[in-house]
């Protein structure tokens, strides 16, 4: 019966309508969050506190992953490039792949599973234990007091984390390529510098990570705020945050990359 219902045309239609409704609700939610950001501006301490939870606590995973991704790129890149005798381009390969793609994308994926899921769980739990209702009963808007500072903290920390990820990855590539394998250090850096453009590559990477930060934080906060106030509801919302964020990051990455290459 349940399977039949799920597969029926009516079921699909209902699901589609439901998704559109949810999207509309999510849009209204983010608009309200942006509109009630005044409190965060007046009291930067609220944002600083959330920067600690979203940014500082994500540092370890970001830095370690960045280092490893860079080291793997160093090995793989060297292996591929040496067949064409152009090992000296290793720096270019590592830097461009990190700055343009892997930095923003992998950092955002890690951010979604580390900070995003934590945000969803925290807000969902605050809802389930009536903390948000209590706040509202005390004439304090939870969107302004709880959601908006987290939103800004997420949007601020994402580009910083992505930059650290890329820098760490390039260092990892340098470790493997130059220190371990023995690619010429001079050509590693100089080729990188002549090939990586500040505006085209680095700034576009930063723009990507800001967009990803916006998307991940939005999804995480909305899932938490919209979670059914039960234990199952919160755990389901946390899972949904990671899944939806990851898909959103990859889809947005495709759109942004297409847009940026067209803009050249």
């Amino acid at each position: 019966m349940a399977i039949h219902k799920g597969l029926s045309l009516r079921g699909i239609g209902a699901k589609a309508i439901d998704s559109v409704l949810r999207l509309g609700y999510a849009a209204r939610f983010i608009a309200r969050t942006a509109a009630s950001s005044g409190t965060s501006l007046r009291r930067p301490r609220l944002v600083i506190r959330e920067l600690y939870f979203t940014g500082v606590l994500s540092l370890i995973i970001i830095l370690v992953s960045g280092l490893f991704v860079g080291m793997v790129l160093g090995f793989q890149g060297y292996h591929t490039l040496q067949t064409y005798g152009s090992e000296s381009a290793l720096g270019v390969l590592v830097a461009l792949s990190l700055v343009r793609e892997l930095g923003p994308v992998v950092a955002a994926l890690l951010f979604a599973s580390r900070a995003g899921s934590a945000m969803t769980a925290e807000i969902g739990l605050m809802k389930a234990t009536e903390q948000l209702s209590a706040m509202e009963m005390m004439a304090v808007d939870p969107i302004a007091r709880v959601v908006a500072p987290r939103f800004w903290a997420g949007v601020i920390s994402m580009p910083l984390l992505a930059a650290m990820f890329s820098a760490m990855g390039i260092f990892g590539g340098y470790l493997v390529g130059v220190v371990l394998i023995g690619v010429d250090e001079g050509s590693f850096w100089s080729q990188m510098q002549s090939a990586v453009d500040f505006r085209e590559d680095i700034m576009n990477g930063v723009i990507k990570s800001v967009v990803f930060g916006f998307a991940v934080t939005w999804i995480s906060l909305f899932e938490g705020y919209d979670a059914p106030p039960t234990a199952e509801g919160v755990s389901g919302a946390t899972t949904r945050t990671v899944v939806t964020s990851s898909l959103a990051i990859l889809a947005l990455d495709f759109l942004l990359t297409a847009f940026m290459f067209r803009g050249v």
Partner: peptide
């Protein structure tokens, strides 16, 4: 108004 919630609803953080 003051309201006391069922399980207190203290802010856990």
């Amino acid at each position: 108004l003051g309201m006391m919630f069922q399980f207190g609803a203290l802010f856990t953080d």
